[in-house]
Amino acid sequence: MKIVVIGGTGLIGSKLVKKLGEHGHEAVAASPNTGVNTLTGEGLREVLEGASVVIDVSNSPSFEEKAVMEFFTTSTGNLLAAEAAAGVGHHVALSVVGTERPPGNAYFRAKIAQEQLIEKSSIPFSLVHATQFFEFTRAIADQATVDGAVRMPPVLFQPMAGEDVARAVGRAAVGAPLNGRVEIGGPDQYRMDEFFRQALAGWGDPRPVVTDPHAQYFGEELLERSLVPDEDAPRAEIHYRDWAAQNDR
């Protein structure tokens, strides 16, 4: 089965292409690096020829409100139109746990707009909502740093490894379209402030982690369950401590 992975040279996309190939599928990495640009439409017709499934794990290069909305609406619109013309039978998109819950930042609003385009299209679809990636924990800590201290709210936090994200998206892609969404989170649930206190200690990072109920996460204050999936959602396999021992140097 030919499966085109939009964003196929990125963190999750490259893992997906490898996993799908190992399972005997013709997995094609599509990105500006390979001559496919969903914002302009360049290369879409050619790469989608003969494709049964398209997986979109692309991401906006900017999280500025106007730019991120334009990226997800324009690229998704172009992609869906090209898929319809090519006769693609299944569209799979990676999204984020909590996009539909208030409060919502600019990135979440753009992801909601993307999902609405997918839901309204004629193409059968599956949406995979994943929690935050272990690979982004340093970036999250950096954006939360104020005057040398990492300010974190004591809300629930359930991050997961990129490897597990790719596995979940791949499972959705080779299965029947859900015409809905599935959530997945990490194997362990933490308080966000405690997770980062332990993570920074493991990195040997001297910044203190300050518990602050009003600390902002990319411009918004979080509610207790803003970032975690429903309680009955499946959990990923890789624990942070094991991932960190191999990756977090």
Rank of each mutant, 00 (worst) to 15 (best):
I6R: 00
G10V: 08
I12D: 07
G13S: 12
S14E: 06
L20R: 02
G21T: 13
H25N: 14
E26W: 04
E26Q: 13
A27Y: 07
V28H: 05
A30M: 03
S31M: 00
N33P: 02
T34Q: 05
G35R: 03
N37Q: 05
N37E: 04
T40A: 07
T40I: 04
G41E: 03
G43A: 08
G43L: 08
R45S: 11
R45H: 06
E46Y: 09
L48D: 00
E49I: 01
V53E: 00
V54I: 14
V54Y: 02
D56M: 10
D56S: 15
N59K: 04
S60H: 10
P61G: 11
S62D: 15
S62V: 13
A67C: 11
V68G: 00
E70F: 00
E70Q: 11
F71H: 09
F71G: 04
F71R: 00
T76R: 04
T76A: 11
L80D: 03
L80M: 07
A81Q: 12
A81Y: 05
A85C: 05
A86N: 01
V88E: 04
V88M: 11
H90V: 12
H90S: 09
A93H: 12
L94H: 14
V96Y: 15
V97Q: 05
T99W: 02
T99M: 07
P103I: 13
P103T: 12
G104T: 13
N105G: 14
N105E: 10
R109W: 03
A110P: 09
A113Q: 06
Q116M: 11
L117V: 00
L117W: 03
I118Y: 00
I118V: 14
K120G: 02
S121W: 00
L127N: 05
T131P: 04
F133D: 06
F133N: 07
F136M: 13
F136A: 12
A141P: 07
D142R: 14
Q143D: 13
Q143I: 15
A144G: 00
T145G: 10
V146T: 13
G148L: 12
A149G: 03
V150H: 05
R151N: 10
V155D: 02
V155G: 00
V155R: 01
Q158E: 08
Q158N: 07
P159G: 08
P159Y: 11
A161D: 14
V165A: 14
R167P: 00
R167W: 10
R171G: 06
G175M: 08
A176D: 15
P177V: 06
G180D: 10
I184H: 02
G185I: 10
G186A: 09
P187W: 13
Y190Q: 08
D193E: 11
D193M: 12
D193R: 07
R197Y: 11
A199W: 04
L200T: 12
A201Y: 06
A201R: 13
G202T: 06
G204T: 12
D205A: 06
R207C: 15
R207A: 15
V209Y: 04
V209H: 01
T211K: 00
D212Q: 09
Q216S: 03
Y217Q: 03
F218C: 01
F218R: 05
E224Y: 08
V228F: 04
D232A: 14
A233T: 13
R235D: 04
A236F: 13
R241V: 09
D242K: 06
A244H: 13
Q246G: 12
N247E: 13
R249P: 15
